[in-house]
Design a protein around this nucleic acid. Structure first.
Length: 337
DNA sequence: AATGCGGGGAC
DNA sequence: GTCCCAGCATT
């Protein structure tokens, strides 16, 4: 398990920063004082960090006793699923499978049932594969190395950085949708970041991450939290923002999103994804197997598949679930793997 | 760079 | 109805 949670390392971002210290980040300005600031912190950093100390949510995976595995599980669940829906599922999950070895030994069907309606159930299978890899190749310890993290199923650039920062308190560039939005507004003066994450944006974010490892970890989570609670996508609460005085977007008068017309909105009703979701829900609620006819009817929302605008959709959804390993064909029908 | 992939809640 | 959410894998 992880021993370096260091949540209580704290206070490195507290207090006032002397200008002399700010200009000399190579030395130790006040070696006798533990509360002394690192030299690379700007008023922007102080504002966000102080705000976080006051307003951070008490989320279970942020507690100092949370294991690296607990952090990794939370990050995978939070990939496109809001915090309020993840929290209860995460608690039940961690109680049932506290370690990678425990999850690796679980039946995929039970994993998918526990995943319930978090969405994108392929993540549940990947997380189980991830657990198996950690158990088999990393001695049951979540790796700290970036390349090793990226090699894990379901772990991409964001999740690898998040585990390194939040579980291992390493300096990492955590760039999720919240951080991108906050930095885009404060620094670039745009309502929302561009659809794709580019090199320039990544380097700009990296330049803002404090040098000190523990402070960098707090900065990452603080900016993320600010984006989640104040600098929200829909109705930002600028009067409550600790850096409203230095926000380029606010100063410019909240200009509209330049990419507004270009963003594609993913439909839901009458889509393959809705049909897949209905099949998965039916399979989760069934111990054994369901017949193909029952599943195709479920995929059509209880109607006859032929009555749909796209009669092939139910069968296409079922086939794709089998391809993804989320359903398996057995005698007389299909069931969870 | 563009797509597909769940599901629910806010507006 | 639309939009958004601690993204990833694949093309």
């Amino acid at each position: 398990m992880r021993s370096n949670t260091a949540q209580e390392h704290g206070r490195t971002d507290h207090g006032t920063l002397s200008l002399a210290a700010a200009r000399h980040n190579t030395g130790v300005p006040f070696p006798h004082c533990q509360d002394v600031e690192r030299g690379d912190l700007t008023p922007l950093h102080h504002g966000v960090l102080a705000w976080y100390r006051e307003h951070a949510r008490d989320l279970p995976w942020r507690r100092p006793d949370a294991s690296a595995w607990a952090v990794l599980v939370s990050e995978v669940m939070l990939q496109q699923t809001p915090v309020v829906r993840v929290e209860p599922a995460w608690r039940a999950w961690m109680e049932r499978w506290p370690t990678p070895a425990a999850l690796a030994a679980a039946e995929p069907a039970e994993v998918l049932r526990a995943w319930d309606r978090l969405g994108y159930p392929r993540r549940a299978l990947r997380l189980r594969e991830c657990a198996a890899t950690i158990a088999a190749r990393h001695g049951g310890v979540v790796p700290e190395d970036e390349a090793e993290l990226l090699a894990l199923p379901g772990v991409g650039e964001y999740t690898a950085a998040a585990v390194r920062a939040f579980a291992y308190r390493r300096r990492a560039v955590v760039l999720d949708t919240n951080v991108r939005r906050v930095l885009g507004r404060v620094a670039d003066g745009v309502a929302l970041p561009p659809p794709s994450l580019g090199r320039a944006e990544r380097e700009r974010a990296a330049a803002l991450v404090p040098e000190d490892a523990e402070t960098s970890a707090r900065w990452n989570v603080a900016v993320m939290e600010l984006g989640a609670l104040v600098c929200t996508a829909r109705s930002p609460r600028c009067p409550e923002c600790p850096v409203q005085g230095r926000c380029a977007w606010l100063a410019a008068g909240h200009p509209e999103d330049a990419h507004a017309g270009r963003r594609r909105t993913q439909g839901w009703h009458g889509t393959d994804r809705q049909a897949r979701g209905r099949i998965m829900a039916a399979l989760r609620d069934t111990e054994g197997a369901l017949t193909q006819e029952e599943l195709l009817t479920a995929a059509a929302g209880g109607a006859a598949p032929e009555a749909l605008d796209d009669p092939a959709r139910p069968a296409r959804a079922l086939t794709s679930l089998v391809t993804d390993g989320l359903a398996v064909e057995v005698e007389g029908g299909y069931r969870l793997p």
